[in-house]
Design a protein around this nucleic acid. Structure first.
Length: 686
RNA sequence: GGCGCGAUAGCUCAGCUGGUUAGAGCGCAUGAUUCAUAAUCAUGAGGUCCCCAGUUCAAUCCUGGGUCGCGCUACCA
């Protein structure tokens, strides 16, 4: 905002190294970030574009277990795939490192240590699930069970991959340890928390007053968090994979990934620059921008800034956080677990040399303001009728004609007529629009600007018709082609941030090297008499077969998914028998019949019913999460079975004394258990 | 359930602080053209600006309510 920045630090979200990168990641984060970075470099700005793999956290340890290898093996595998595919795709990171690096461990530990020594954390004990067999605490991801929302088996303690709901371990039905398969118990453990609430006022001022120009989704999300009041957030976890907490008595604890990962931006900068790094993180004249997806807003706008603020020592804050929405694929959400994605490393193999096509389509269709849909038909159409027909075709026309009439030498421009002047005058106008759009993160619009330059070229050629004039006035033809070629040279600059491979190809054709933004807009980039190289096509048509093959591939995935669902429906996955228990243990449970007297929905909840029941011994209240399966009216008068002596618990402020026994099938339908015939209330069940 | 963001031509999107006939690209139709990867250029058809109510001389834009999509977040002893 008018501020004069000396350098630009650009970060893009660290991809999680338990899978490859797909078009959703690219469209949301890496393509826009790369365009931005390339643009600034072209302008001669001092730029560092930082990224790396995020390699800690529980999902990776689980993946390792599934694959029967070490977590290190997992991250090695995916880090390599991700790094290679980014590189081939032309994402121009200055460094792509990883959080398992020594330097990151050292940096992250030191960061924690300073905050710890400065008394910036609070310590708290809490109850966590603990696996008695494996003798270890269980992170959310290490607990599996039945999803309470969709009924799918194998949901994780933090999320169900089938239906995508966010969960907490307590919600899982029939929780099991992912390590031993046993039923976990609750146990107290100590952790450190960053008291975000202490930074609320400061955040308000910084974001709500100071950054009204942020995208509405980002600003609104931040405001929502701040208005809701911030809570202390745990920064450590009981786990053996990650950066160990550098404090005495913290054995078996590591930094929580969200604390660890953003420090990766810093450690990767250190790895890249050595002692120079501080200039990039601690100078007011550095402009830092985080490119992320919308699910990451809170970490980059609230949590990480609090960490930097707590650390102090001159750390700068992001100037902007242009978070994008999500990209869907053929009408459905992209899903790694369901393999519903277009994987970058597969695309690179199946469409060799066509990086720019995907870059173009993902930018043109980027989810900047709302979720968007990627379809292969659209991909084909944009390639064939935009890249090939407009941009590629114009360049081809210009170069082919020049070879035909002037042996491939730049012809001399003579008297410029009005048409020529008008065409050339458009170039700086387009440039200005590009600059505005790029600097405000409107990459879709910016790409349109660049395309308009190619349109201008086609229009110019059609209006001037050099192939007709060639019969009478070669001098005029020389001027026309000179102008056309100057437009081509400008195109190679305009498209450089978006389509670097094609720009390079175009420059090779024009036989020029190097580009800089400064030249953009000029009509004398190519000198008279300069020899061009042979014409080659900038873009190839994408044939129907290629698209059909991709769609067939997706259909196969869909069929496989449906088959998997069908199989589980036919032969339901039955949860294995629990650990043996003694008769005494069973006898401790007081299970008996009861009748529902009243039932009401608990206000402001989706799933809770408050039931008044007659247990034979008393009338009591039970809160049960069955509102999605039974209406209150249905429940009244029904005889049910309850666990009567379960320790009472407050749910939504209501004391619930006991639990209703429910049977649940594969698709998540819950049915209460009832005696075959009505019996007296309070009848014991053994 | 709470909160946030979105909803504008067949598709993808612009529409600044409310103001005469709501714009662009692609697709479609018609015409022109043939240097070019049957590419290009011109013209045109296409919209209850999600719905309802309100404020206003005037609302796509403001207010209230609702519907749908997505994200964050809460309850399941």
């Amino acid at each position: 905002m008018g501020k004069d920045f000396k350098r630009h630090l650009i970060t893009s979200a660290l991809p999680y190294a338990n899978g490859a990168v797909h078009i959703g990641h690219l469209a949301g984060v890496y393509v826009p970030a790369d365009i931005y970075a390339r643009y600034l470099r072209l302008k001669g700005e001092d730029v560092k574009f930082i990224c790396g793999s995020d390699e800690h956290g529980v999902p990776i340890t689980i993946k390792a277990k599934q694959l029967k290898c070490s977590p290190q093996d997992v991250v090695d595998k995916y880090h390599t795939i991700i790094k290679d595919s980014f590189e081939q795709f032309g994402i121009s990171f200055d460094i792509y490192s990883r959080t398992t690096s020594k330097i990151h461990h050292k940096t992250a530990a030191a960061f924690f240590e300073k905050l710890y020594n400065d008394g910036k954390f609070i310590e708290k004990e809490s109850e966590q699930y603990f696996d008695t067999e494996a003798n270890t605490f269980l992170a959310d991801r290490y607990i599996t069970g039945t999803c309470p929302k969709c009924g799918a088996e194998g949901a994780y303690g933090d999320q169900c991959e089938k239906c995508g709901s966010t969960l907490s371990p307590e919600e899982l039905i029939n929780p099991r340890s992912a390590i031993s398969g046993s039923e976990p118990i609750k146990k107290a453990t100590k952790h450190w928390y960053l008291p975000l609430d202490k930074y609320e006022e400061w955040l308000r001022e910084w974001i709500l007053d100071g950054h009204k120009e942020w995208k509405t989704n980002v600003y609104g999300q931040c405001k929502s968090w701040l208005d809701g009041g911030l809570q202390p957030r745990a920064v450590s976890r009981d786990l053996d994979w990650g950066v160990p907490v550098p404090v005495k008595g913290a054995e078996g604890k590591v930094l929580y990934v969200w604390f660890d990962a953003p420090i990766g931006y810093i450690s990767n900068t250190i790895e890249l620059l050595g002692d120079e790094w501080e200039k990039w993180w601690k100078s007011d004249d550095t402009k830092m921008v985080h490119f992320i997806g919308k699910d990451n807003i809170v970490f980059h706008c609230i949590v990480f800034p609090c960490m930097l603020k707590a650390y102090g020592d001159g750390f700068i804050l992001p100037e902007n956080v242009p978070a994008n929405e999500f990209l869907n694929l053929e009408g459905n959400k992209i899903s790694t677990s369901r393999n519903w994605a277009v994987w970058l490393h597969e695309y690179l193999q199946e469409f060799p040399g066509q990086q720019d096509v995907l870059r173009y389509v993902l930018c043109a269709n980027a989810p900047e303001t709302k979720d968007n849909d990627f379809t292969w038909k659209d991909f084909q159409q944009r390639n064939n009728s935009e890249l090939v027909a407009i941009y590629g075709n114009f360049v081809n026309r210009s170069v082919v004609l020049t070879h035909k009439y002037f042996g491939g030498k730049i012809p001399v421009s003579n008297n410029l007529l009005n048409v020529d002047k008008e065409a050339l005058a458009q170039i700086p106008i387009i440039k200005a629009s590009l600059e505005t759009n790029l600097s405000t993160y409107k990459f879709r619009e910016a790409l349109k600007d660049a395309m308009n330059l190619a349109r201008l070229g086609n229009k110019y050629l059609t209006e001037t018709e050099p192939w007709k004039i060639a019969k009478t006035d070669m001098e005029r033809v020389a001027t026309i082609l000179n102008v056309s070629l100057q437009i081509c040279a400008n195109l190679s600059i305009a498209f450089e941030p978006f389509l670097p491979f094609s720009s390079k190809k175009l420059r090779d054709m024009l036989n020029i090297t190097g580009v800089n933004w400064e030249e953009f807009g000029r009509a004398d980039i190519l000198l008279n008499g300069h020899q061009l190289n042979a014409a080659q096509l900038l873009f190839a048509k994408v044939e129907d077969e290629a698209i059909e093959a991709q769609i067939a591939k997706l259909n196969a995935t869909k069929a496989a998914n449906e088959a998997a669902v069908a199989t589980t429906a036919k032969s339901p996955v039955v949860v294995p028998q629990k650990e043996e228990c003694t008769f005494d243990e069973f006898a401790k449970m007081d299970i008996r019949t009861a009748t529902v007297l009243e039932a009401v929905k608990v206000p402001k909840t989706d799933k809770l019913l408050q039931l008044t029941i007659d247990t034979g011994i008393d009338k009591r209240t039970i809160v049960s999460g069955i509102a999605e399966h039974y209406t209150p009216q249905e429940m009244v008068g029904k005889q049910i079975c309850i666990l009567a002596n379960l320790a009472p618990r407050k749910i939504k402020g209501i004391e619930s004394k006991g639990m209703i026994l429910m049977a649940k099938d594969e698709s998540g339908n819950m049915k209460f258990v009832t005696p075959a015939q009505v019996v007296d209330n309070g009848a014991q069940i053994n």
